[in-house]
Design a protein around this nucleic acid. Structure first.
Lengths: 158, 158
DNA sequence: ATTGCAGTTGCGAACTTATCGCACCTACGA
DNA sequence: TCGTAGGTGCGATAAGTTCGCAACTGCAAT
């Protein structure tokens, strides 16, 4: 577990337990977005007795402390990733499930525009649509591409 | 049920049942985004025997036919709304749960930018952050406003 | 080192949202 | 009016997440 996270936990009076360290490390090592179940599985490869309830409770805590970000990539389950200095946004492909990243500067005037027009302070956004491959395969002809996964194959890595 | 929806259903060989009409009407009358449970409740005020399974199946069908849109406003459940000619996007307030609408022209070059930089065809996007009221109450000082609902009161209307 | 205990964990049960199987029902064309 | 493929109600099931509680443990004080 990184020094920063360790300190944050302990400074605030939380115990530094192996379970917490393991969850944190799993998230760091994975890099991408993981569901609770996946995190639990990774942790259990080394410590099979760690319970999923603990994983959920740890994630809740880490999110609360701002060490981990809970991202919305769909309505099916929750995904988690280490909170970064420069937060990014997500593009979810309806075709293959692939998740792309976008940084603030590639959002165009979105952040500023929403603040100006609606007084809304954007923290994070997720866009749904079709990635380059699926758009090409599903059909540049028409707006509603093929239903579900097909064409370019599923590069799913949620 | 609107003439258009009726025709679409029947033209494609689907039966026009009272249950389907009721679900559709509930969505039209509500205007906003409804969850399956809420739709079912509205329908049941008049026909208490309509089952939630049927509501789910009807929503699935209507979404498939492009008459209803399933929007992602969080990871907790799915929301539905009548598909409009000019689709809009959503801003979800982390503070009060309020949901604001944004139209394409207020997205700043987002759609074009994503297409240009990543080849991504945006269909719909959802942004999370703080609405004007919550940002003002939670604290214009700093970036991470108050935790959860407080301050301006909960105008929640998911 | 030992101790005390509030904070944590494991486990099972409960909850929530959404899907499925199946017998009965019904919209609609013949 | 009838026949039947499509639809519905109901209960069971599945997946994801939360909760209650007894047992356990990190860590500060001794």
């Amino acid at each position: 577990m990184s020094h920063h996270a360790t300190r944050t936990l302990q400074e605030l009076g939380y115990r530094l337990t192996p379970q917490r360290t393991l969850v944190w490390d799993a998230l760091r090592e994975a890099g991408g977005h993981l569901g609770a179940e996946e995190i639990c599985a990774r942790v259990q490869t080394r410590f099979p007795n760690v319970n999923i309830s603990t994983v959920y409770r740890t994630l809740e805590l880490l999110v609360e402390l701002g060490l981990v970000r809970e991202t919305v990539l769909g309505s099916d389950r929750r995904y988690y990733e280490v909170e970064e200095e420069v937060p990014h946004h997500h593009l979810v492909c309806d075709g293959c499930g692939r998740v792309l990243h976008v940084h603030n500067e590639d959002l165009g005037g979105l952040t500023a525009g929403l603040l100006r027009n609606q007084g809304f302070r954007l923290r994070e956004m997720t866009a749904f649509g079709y990635c380059r491959e699926c758009a090409a395969a599903g059909g540049p002809h028409g707006d509603r591409a093929a239903d579900g996964a097909e064409g370019g194959g599923d590069h799913a890595h949620p």
